[in-house]
């Protein structure tokens, strides 16, 4: 099988976020991989599983319902070529699913795959710098031509590229979360100090007294200190030192 270079290049561009260049989030990325996978690789169907964060639930995608179902069950049973490629970080070359060896190796996986009409499978790890984060599984039907070495090389390149994109996206999300937390902490401090000033002046309190009033109100109303402070500064909430701020 030969795939025109232009077509291959287009798929890599799509995986990098298309012409807009905005990185795809994990589900879109996997959906893109399985959407273009079968045609590009000349196989009946493809499935993929990935989890960048080892503690998170792995995500699955399939180019058709059968492939998606098989992927989900493989995950549940911890069986099949994708599971092995993902654990070992090494590709699993094309395996005949109706052969004895495959049936012994993955009993539940092979019988379900055959039921769904897949007679051959190959798997490629989504490799990253430290560990594999998932796998790309190629599923063949009896009507497909045999998988060539070229197909394998292209599949591994796609898998690696997807893994890189997943990692980059994960780092981006993490950095956004951390930046957001830092900004939130700094902004909260500013607004709380401003609210202390407002209360100190309007209620004739010291800064410590103003803070106690603010905190007392937040506790009594089970609200975040910074939210109460915000309301005080914006003039939406008037606290009075005398009545414990319940007005």
């Amino acid at each position: 099988m030969t795939t025109p270079a232009q077509q291959i290049a287009d798929v890599f561009v799509e995986l990098s976020g298309g012409s807009a260049g905005a990185p795809l989030e994990a589900p879109e990325l996997l959906a893109t991989l399985v959407r273009y996978g079968p045609e590009l690789l000349g196989v009946h169907a493809v499935g993929t599983v990935a989890a960048v964060d080892a503690r998170a639930e792995p995500q699955v995608a399939g180019s058709e319902d059968g492939a998606q179902l098989l992927k989900r069950e493989a995950l549940k049973w911890a069986e099949g070529p994708g599971t092995e490629a993902r654990n070992s970080g090494r590709p699993i070359p094309c395996v005949a699913l109706d052969g004895q060896a495959a049936m012994r190796r993955w009993p539940r996986y092979t019988s379900r795959a055959l039921e769904l009409g897949y007679t051959r499978a190959a798997a490629f790890p989504l490799r990253t710098r430290e560990r594999p984060v998932g796998a790309l599984v190629l599923l063949g039907s009896p009507a497909d031509a045999p998988m060539s070495e070229e197909t394998g090389a292209l599949a591994q390149a796609l898998a690696d590229f997807t893994a890189l994109a997943l990692i980059r996206e994960h780092e981006l999300q993490e950095s956004r979360t951390l930046s957001g937390q830092l900004e939130h902490a700094l902004v909260s401090r500013v607004i709380i100090e401003q609210a202390k000033g407002v209360l100190a002046n309007s209620c004739g309190l010291t800064m410590d007294g103003a803070f106690a009033l603010l905190r007392g109100h937040a506790r009594a109303h089970r609200r975040l200190l910074s939210d109460v402070a915000h309301d005080v500064v914006e003039g939406r909430l008037r606290l009075d030192g005398g009545d414990n701020g319940l007005t």
Binding site: L186, I191, E193, Q194, A195, K196, G197, V198, N201, S202
Partner: peptide
């Protein structure tokens, strides 16, 4: 964090009846 500046801004906003 310029705590005193923000405290003073809160006080002045009350004194001058203006946004912080």
């Amino acid at each position: 964090h310029r705590d005193a500046v923000h405290q003073a801004a809160g006080m002045v906003s009350v004194q001058e009846h203006c946004p912080v």
